[in-house]
Simulated scan of single mutants.
Amino acid sequence: MHKAVSLSYAFIAIATAGITSCGNTNDKVQIATGQVTQGSTVEANKLYSQARALEAQGSTKKAIKVYGNVTDDYPMSKEAPDARIRQAELLYSQAELMKSFEQYQSFITQYRGTSQYDKAIQRQSDVVHAASTGKIKNSFLGLKSDIPRSKVEKMFIQVRDNAPFGPTAPKAQFGLAEMWQNDKNLGKAIKAYEDLYVRYPKSSLAPEALYRVGNLLLKQTEDGNRNRGNLDTANTTFTDLTLLYPNSKQAKSAKVILKQIKGSDIQRSFSIAEFYEKKKQYPSAAFYYNEVIRATKSGSDLNQRSKQRLAALPK
């Protein structure tokens, strides 16, 4: 299943190292300039003032609606960007997180070059991480509901791709991977962690992503999916981790696990040798006893036992 991933992550890092940070381009981005007809300018200002007054009076629900009308009806007016962000902020303050996410997305899509763009990106990040942990408020009645995982996945991808070179991007990718891991969907979790490393090899989350890939592959072998490819890929992943991030705490843990994998491989070879010996397939038994001898220190328990069994095999 993960054959393709067994290609060293170190190679991937070299291939992606030349990427430099730059923002997304969007030919359809709207920049509000206020260059609308005089009548529209007056009406947009009137609606915006009405929304501000409603907000000040505590009529939050009505204010949200009127702010939306400003941006929907007069998207190029100078009031439009602030109206949309105020609408989103009020929804956020009322814990209407899903609705606020949608309005932040509208703001990000339409008004990328405005001053509150970074705030919208961060708010979206906060919302999707909350959504991934379980139930969140989803209506003015205060009701809470489960958000479908397919919906949360789409939200994570939107947050990641809205600012692919900002700090929220690798966090969104990591959050997506962690969500699948918590749901015990190991295949999707592994793929998402791999994507984080490939996309953001310089992120502080990259060593942890590699470490989790290795551990999840090992978990699959423990859970009954004893695909030799999983074990080999885990070994490659942990090795790459020690080479690429030698000073990370994850690299220290990876070195311990690599020793355990090597030990289990040696024990496995010895067990296979015993199996062939019992079946009287002596050439095959000899091959695996020699494998153990080569992989162990002279004088160690398995080394001595393998030599003794090898010597006792019928010629």
Rank of each mutant, 00 (worst) to 15 (best):
residue 276 Y to A: 13
residue 150 S to E: 15
residue 107 F to Q: 06
residue 268 R to E: 09
residue 256 V to T: 14
residue 269 S to L: 10
residue 14 I to V: 13
residue 166 G to C: 10
residue 135 K to Y: 00
residue 236 T to S: 15
residue 26 N to R: 11
residue 41 T to I: 06
residue 298 S to G: 13
residue 282 Y to L: 02
residue 18 G to Y: 02
residue 91 L to Y: 03
residue 287 F to V: 11
residue 257 I to E: 11
residue 173 Q to P: 10
residue 253 S to V: 00
residue 197 Y to A: 01
residue 45 N to W: 05
residue 238 F to I: 02
residue 226 R to L: 14
residue 297 K to H: 09
residue 55 E to W: 01
residue 269 S to N: 15
residue 7 L to R: 13
residue 208 E to W: 01
residue 300 S to V: 03
residue 131 A to S: 12
residue 294 R to P: 09
residue 176 L to D: 04
residue 245 Y to E: 09
residue 315 K to G: 05
residue 212 R to A: 02
residue 51 A to S: 01
residue 5 V to H: 06
residue 241 L to W: 05
residue 151 K to D: 01
residue 247 N to V: 07
residue 1 M to R: 09
residue 239 T to L: 12
residue 161 D to K: 10
residue 159 V to R: 06
residue 250 Q to C: 12
residue 114 T to F: 09
residue 224 G to W: 09
residue 82 D to M: 06
residue 67 Y to E: 01
residue 210 L to E: 10
residue 87 Q to R: 08
residue 151 K to G: 01
residue 98 M to P: 07
residue 55 E to S: 09
residue 2 H to G: 11
residue 1 M to N: 05
residue 272 I to T: 05
residue 118 D to E: 15
residue 48 Y to G: 00
residue 244 L to V: 08
residue 148 P to N: 00
residue 143 L to Y: 00
residue 93 S to F: 01
residue 284 S to V: 11
residue 130 A to L: 15
residue 184 K to H: 14
residue 245 Y to R: 05
residue 36 V to D: 08
residue 303 N to I: 04
residue 255 K to Y: 08
residue 285 A to V: 03
residue 260 Q to W: 13
residue 28 K to A: 10
residue 162 N to W: 12
residue 185 N to T: 01
residue 16 T to Q: 10
residue 33 T to Y: 12
residue 77 S to C: 07
residue 112 R to V: 00
residue 295 A to W: 04
residue 245 Y to M: 13
residue 26 N to W: 11
residue 26 N to L: 07
residue 71 T to R: 08
residue 204 S to I: 12
residue 298 S to L: 02
residue 55 E to K: 11
residue 271 S to G: 04
residue 242 T to M: 14
residue 220 Q to Y: 05
residue 125 S to M: 05
residue 125 S to Y: 14
residue 198 V to K: 15
residue 228 R to P: 08
residue 57 Q to D: 13
residue 292 V to Y: 12
residue 3 K to T: 03
residue 219 K to S: 09
residue 35 Q to I: 14
residue 212 R to C: 11
residue 195 D to I: 10
residue 165 F to Y: 11
residue 24 N to H: 08
residue 1 M to L: 02
residue 303 N to F: 11
residue 35 Q to K: 15
residue 272 I to Y: 06
residue 234 A to G: 06
residue 222 E to H: 13
residue 89 E to G: 04
residue 223 D to T: 14
residue 37 T to M: 09
residue 220 Q to S: 14
residue 83 A to W: 06
residue 233 T to N: 02
residue 260 Q to H: 09
residue 231 L to A: 12
residue 281 Q to N: 14
residue 115 S to F: 09
residue 171 K to F: 15
residue 200 Y to A: 02
residue 146 D to Q: 00
residue 69 N to K: 06
residue 11 F to I: 04
residue 73 D to W: 08
residue 190 I to E: 05
residue 49 S to M: 03
residue 145 S to M: 09
residue 283 P to W: 05
residue 69 N to E: 14
residue 99 K to Q: 15
residue 285 A to E: 02
residue 275 F to I: 06
residue 46 K to D: 03
residue 276 Y to P: 05
residue 267 Q to N: 12
residue 218 L to T: 00
residue 193 Y to Q: 04
residue 279 K to I: 08
residue 245 Y to T: 06
residue 277 E to W: 08
residue 182 N to H: 13
